[in-house]
Each structure stands twice: as structure tokens, then as C-alpha cells.
């Protein structure tokens, strides 16, 4: 919410097609939610105090509040812990909704910068997490400088990149895939 903004959500701006879009992106049980609240008190996003957390996100999605959900960064703070999926009495699979919203956000390039960084690392090095100075750390632990993963095998890494180029990454990636 904007600093000093008015705290009213305008339901007439809701977009019913957003519900259908999310259903197509994997949240196919979304409308089954009865807002019982069971996911709301063990969701790490709720416990940590994010503006949106799973119970609120499911409701906002069902209302079709596209702009609010895509502008807010909360969905990118979801831990993928899947506790909501485990306990949901209506089998809404709330976590799959988080992914659906992220997928919708990626299409309109509305995601935090570190998401792109992770994707770029994944494509370039085969590792989403690729921190500097690892060679030194590995030496300290008495291991070879590079692990026997894609980072050590250029040919295999190229094959992996070819796989990624044949996925939706080809359309979405805001960086060159070559």
C-alpha cells in the first residue's frame, strides 16, 4: 500500500478474467476456497508480517484483484513450504496459486530483480545460487575448487541450456539466451 494512501480496495476494478488466467496457470482449485482460515496462522508469510499472505492472497485472487496482487511483492516471499497444501481442508493447493500468480507476474515483467538474477545464474552456470569466492571455501573444506556439477562440464552445461531454451524461458527471459 502506498505511503499515505487511502486504505480502500475498489472491488469494481476487479478483473474476473484474472481468476480464469490463474486457473489456467495451475491454480485450478482456487474457487473451492471457503476462507476457513486454516492456512492463515502457520503461513510463514503471515507470521513474518508480509502485507499479503496465503489466506489473503487466495481471497484477493478470487475477487480478481489483479493489479494489487501483481504490484505487491509478497508472493515472491513465499517459502514454498507447502504447509498450506498439507493442511488445506478443501484441497485448494494454495501454494500452486502462489506459483500461478508468479507466472502471471513474470509475463508482465512484474517481479523483484533478484528473480531475474536467479534465472540468469541458472541459465549461465546451471546454478541459481552461484556466490562469489566459493573456490576458496571449497579449498578450506579440503575439496576440489569446482564441484562435479554442470559448472565443471562445459558440454553438459550447453546441453542443459538447450533444454532451458526449449521451455517458456525462451519467451520470458529478459536477458539473451545464447
Amino acid at each position: 500500500m502506498e505511503e499515505g494512501g487511502v486504505n480502500v480496495i475498489d472491488l469494481t476494478q476487479a478483473d474476473e478474467s484474472f481468476v480464469k488466467e490463474l486457473e489456467a496457470l495451475g491454480a485450478d482449485e482456487l474457487r473451492e476456497c471457503i476462507q476457513c482460515g486454516k492456512c492463515g496462522a502457520t503461513c510463514p508469510m503471515a507470521l513474518a508480517g508480509l502485507e499479503f499472505f496465503i489466506k489473503r492472497i487466495v481471497h484477493a485472487a478470487n475477487l480478481g484483484l489483479r493489479d494489487i496482487l501483481l504490484e505487491d511483492s509478497s508472493v515472491w516471499g513465499c517459502q514454498s513450504c507447502n504447509r498450506c497444501v498439507e493442511i488445506c481442508p478443501m484441497d485448494v493447493k494454495p501454494y500452486e496459486l502462489i506459483q500461478a500468480i508468479r507466472r502471471a507476474a513474470m509475463k508482465v515483467e512484474s517481479c523483484p530483480a533478484n528473480t531475474y538474477e536467479g534465472l540468469r545464474n541458472l541459465y549461465r552456470f546451471g546454478h541459481a545460487v552461484y556466490p562469489k569466492g566459493y573456490e576458496e571455501r571449497r579449498k578450506k573444506a579440503g575439496l576440489p575448487e569446482k564441484p562435479p556439477t554442470a559448472i565443471s562440464y562445459d558440454e553438459l552445461r550447453k546441453k542443459y541450456q538447450e533444454i532451458l531454451r526449449n521451455t517458456i524461458l525462451e519467451e520470458i527471459a529478459p536477458f539473451p539466451l545464447d
Partner: peptide
């Protein structure tokens, strides 16, 4: 050999 990131939930 050649294994990569799983991939992490925030990526693919």
C-alpha cells in the same frame, strides 16, 4: 556429473 540446480522454487 553435469547436475545443476534442482531448480530452485523462485526460478523455473
Amino acid at each position: 556429473e553435469g547436475a545443476t540446480c534442482c531448480p530452485a522454487f523462485g526460478t523455473m
